[in-house]
Every structure is written in C-alpha cells, then in structure tokens.
Design a protein around this nucleic acid. Sequence first.
DNA 1: GTATCACTCAAGAATTTCTTGACTGAGGCT
DNA 2: AGCCTCAGTCAAGAAATTCTTGAGTGATAC
Lengths: 312, 312
Amino acid sequence: MSDRLPPLTALRAFDAAARHMSFARAAEELNVTPAALSFQIKSLEEHLGAPLFRRLNRAVELTEAGQALAPGAEDGFRALSVAWQQARRVLDTTSLTVTAGPALTAKWLAPRLYEFARAHPEIDLRLSAGLRMMDLRRDGVDVAIRFGYGSDQGLASYPARAEWLTPVMTPDLAARYPTPEALRRAPLIYDDSISFLSPACDWPTWFRAQGLEFTPGSGIHFSNADHAIDAACTGVGVALGRRPMIIKDVMEGRLVAPFKLAIETEARFRFLCLPEAEERPQIKAFREWFFAEIEKTAHMWDDFEIIPVKDL
Amino acid sequence: MSDRLPPLTALRAFDAAARHMSFARAAEELNVTPAALSFQIKSLEEHLGAPLFRRLNRAVELTEAGQALAPGAEDGFRALSVAWQQARRVLDTTSLTVTAGPALTAKWLAPRLYEFARAHPEIDLRLSAGLRMMDLRRDGVDVAIRFGYGSDQGLASYPARAEWLTPVMTPDLAARYPTPEALRRAPLIYDDSISFLSPACDWPTWFRAQGLEFTPGSGIHFSNADHAIDAACTGVGVALGRRPMIIKDVMEGRLVAPFKLAIETEARFRFLCLPEAEERPQIKAFREWFFAEIEKTAHMWDDFEIIPVKDL
DNA sequence: GTATCACTCAAGAATTTCTTGACTGAGGCT
DNA sequence: AGCCTCAGTCAAGAAATTCTTGAGTGATAC
C-alpha cells in the first residue's frame, strides 16, 4: 500500500499486459515466460492492495484500478523509451535530422540533398518539413532552419545574411512586361507566408522602391512561398521571391529576375541547434556545407541594387 | 548498445541523479548507498555505450547524452508516478473529487457541502471549479457536473431535468417594477455564460414569452452566472437566473422571483462519471444525494408556468 | 468427453541490486 | 604546506529480485 512508485519491472509487465490484454503475449514481448509475468502482475497487485486484472478463463479484463493505471503507465513508458532513443541519437554520428519550413525544404534543401549526400556519404540526412517550432531537445531534431527576426533563446544560432526579394517570372511574361511601370499591370502573385514581416516586404513596397505608386488590386494569394514560386513557373503571374526560393528556378531558366532591384528585410534564415551539440561532427559538417552552398551562388546577384525596406 | 529500454532501476537512478545533480543526494532519495547509485549509473552508461555524467571532483555535470536523456526521463517517471496515484485513488473509498462550473460551485454546491458532509461523514469531498472539460480518466477527477446539450461520449451520464430561467431581483426592485411591462424599463443584468444556448434563452426571449416586444439596450454583462446573480442581490438590477443559481438567494429572501413565468431550454446539467466508476460507493452516494437535493426544492416552482424556448 | 488454451503455483536457479569498507583525488582550512 | 573533508569509485560478498521449469486448474471449443 505504498504511495511511492512500485517496482518498475512489475509496472512494466503490467503495461505490456494491459496493452495486449493478454499475459501470454505480454510475456512474449518482454521475453519471459508467462509464469514470470503472472508473478510480476501479482506482485504489483499486492503492492497496490487490489487486483488489476479480472481473470476470466480465456481472457483477462482490467479492473477499475487497472483502467486507471493503464493509460498513464503506457504514457510513462513511452516517454522513457523516447528519452532513451534521444540519448542514443546523440551518440549516433551518422544521422542528422533537420527541420525547415516547407518552402525552404522544397526549393532549396531538397534539390541540394544529392550534393550533400555526395559530399558526406557517411551522414544519413533526414528532413522534417513543418512550420511548427520544434523543441530540439525533446523532438529528436538536430538542426532547425527558420526564417524571421528570431530571438533563438537558449540555442546556438548562426544567422544567414538578411533576406531580400525581387520579382521573378517566366521569360515570356518578362517580355510582355519589360518595365516596372508595365509590371503594375501584370498579374501579381502574393506570398502570404511573409506577410508577418514588419516593415512589410510586399508588392507595394517593391514598387515604392522603384519610385512608383501601387495599390494592390486582385491577385493570386498563396500561403506557402514555394507554391507562389511554383505558380510563377507556370506563367500565371509574377511573384516576389526570396533568394533561396528562386535560385534554382532562375538558374535553370524557368524564371528570370529582369529588374535588378531588390528590397531587403531584416528577417533572415538562421541555422539553429542546441549549444551542446554545436560541435557534433554531422552538425558541423552540415552547417559548413549549408553556408558554403549559400556563398556559391552569391555572385549571381552582384548586379542587383538592394534597398533595405526600413529606408523606404 | 541496445535499442530497447535499459534496466529501469538504472534509469531511475539516473533520473534522481540528474534532478539533484549529485549522486549522494540521489542515493539518499532512493534510500540506497552512494556506491549502489554509482554502480547503477555506470551500468546505464555501459548500456548506452557512452558516459552520461562528467565527473568533476566536487560535482557532476551532464554530458550531451545526459542532457538528451534527462528531461524525458523525468517526464516519464512523473507520468508513471501520476498513473500509480490514480490507481490508488480508485481504491480510496473515502475521497471524491468533483468538478463543476464556477457558478454551480458557488451557488449550489458550496452552500450544500455542509449538508453532504453531515450525511456522509466518511467521504472527503473536494471541489474543483473550472470550465475546462477535464479528462476524468487522466486528471484524477471522479465526477463532473456540466451544463449544456452534452453528448457525453464514453461517460456515464445522468441528466437532470431541462433547465429554465426566470427573472430575479431584490424585493425593493420587485416593488418598483411590479409588471412585466414595467420590467422592460428596469436595469437588466445579462449572463453571458449562457449566450451559447440555441435557441437563445435571454431577456428578449423571456419578454417574448410574455407577449412583449423588447430590444436589449444597455445593461450590465457578466461572464459568470454567479456574478450576475450576486449583482442582482446587491440590487443593481434584475437577472434572468437558472433554477440552481437562484434557489439559495430566493429561499433566504435576498431575491424574489415575482413573475411566475419561466423559459425552458433543452440544455441541462448532467452528472458525469466514468462508466466503470458508476458504482463506487462514494460516487453513488454523491449521485443520489445530488438528485435528492434537487428534488427537495422542486415544489418551490409548482406555481410557475414553464414555456419551452423552442415553442417561441 | 477430450483437447486446448490461458493463466497460476511452488521450488529452486539465475540475475540483479545492494552494502560494506577501503580508496582516490581535488578543494578548502589552518 | 599539510591535513581534512567531500563526492564519487571499486571489489567482494550478501541480499533481494526476477526468472524458469514443470506440474496444475478450470473453462471453453470441438
């Protein structure tokens, strides 16, 4: 009748039995004989002072106390198991889990995965795309790449340079709208995923940088930046794209960035990891590769004039 | 280097050591000698294949692997401990935890607690007021009393009769506004906690039941029903109150319900508990007392005309 | 009416876990 | 500098636990 935790082996046996609703299968799971399992359950029941299972002759059934114990026990052991795997993952120098937004994943990371795999064949890289800010310590993620102003408390944070945006479109559309003035009449694509930026970094801002008035009319809106760029690739309109999102499509000729003017926000991508994990070999390798890869294409924008939005 | 869970005793030793950041204190917590604890940690490190603590001479410090393991381990053991307490609570026939909304708790349950304690001195009743729907199985609550239309899936549900509302006020105010027509000019108190009812069960509905037009003007709004009734008690206005909320104040003369007309909603209070706990002695006792207590005062409203809102 | 299935029991074996008591090495105190 | 204390470690043996074996039980299925 103790108030503290019962013997954990017994509790574990109960968890398995409750999950399988069978002592025999639970015993199999734990690699012990049914007799041992039966004994453990019995000892747990003795600790509690009441039966946890009702023994029907061909089956077992949880008593009320058993029903109260089972879900929490399962949660608890699952938590322990996850924690143990986390610890093991730290030791694993061959795998690396990276989380990034869907757009960066689709437009920048995924196309370069092959490159990285070739440069580091020993590392097994996994991508986890999602906007939810994951808890690096609890969710088993080694690296997060996030866009924004970012406070990044408690994390090692390597900021990339400030991000800027410039109009991109198919060569066809570029021919049809050769000047910024003409562009105002083009079908415009809006990327709502960066509407949180302040000061804003949108179409009116870009035209303002050109010294042109512009009031947004109708247009196509996308909640993901990669969808906006994809739409531009199909030629339905002109998108205002961030560097990493457009680089691939520009290099491969699907899109052009004919106006050599970009507006720059203070927001940027940051490479984040746990401070104690900064020097793990696979994280260090990925970090160095990541920033080198950015530098590789930096020259492409040498002839762009970049105007900070805060000056507009 | 096994992928499955390590010996749980060792994991438990690690958890204690990580929480205290001291082997000696962890050993004390677990009632073992420091040597035993040291041995357990060492065996866990052997399982993992790497050290979990860095031994500095006067202190210990978590390694990276240790930092990865510690928070999850703590969560896990906490979950197990909570689960075990749940199981023990089921066996405890002396205590009973009831959750109800703040209004019912304040206006109906709390004033009757003494009665219940006298009728069942062996039961230790605890109230937990809050709107959040608690998970009876996980939150250690035995009984929930909730108001609404209620689907109550997976729970044993004992509905009380449909609820109705009638105007209540101090005797002073009742003298000043003797007729329903006059009441329209009285300061009215609005209880926003029942604004979710559909069809609505508010002042315009009540006046409609009287055959009177009424458009709500200004008035005092409360988000809790008990605050609305309390306000009526101070004489600042007239409230439209549900039976359980007004009964005490009406019986004790602070409020009167001079108009013998009530509007009835389909919503009602339900007494909820886990199906497997229905017959636990303290739950059964409380349930029977609860419904008997409602019946006791039913005669008070014998002369009321009750009009379902769905007929209005 | 027999076979089978799922769990139980008891005794002894195997394994884990604990204690004792001596040991180590660093920091603090005189 | 020298000594003490503190926190953790080690090794051997003791204690406790957990497991297996092999027989047993009773209800259901065929």
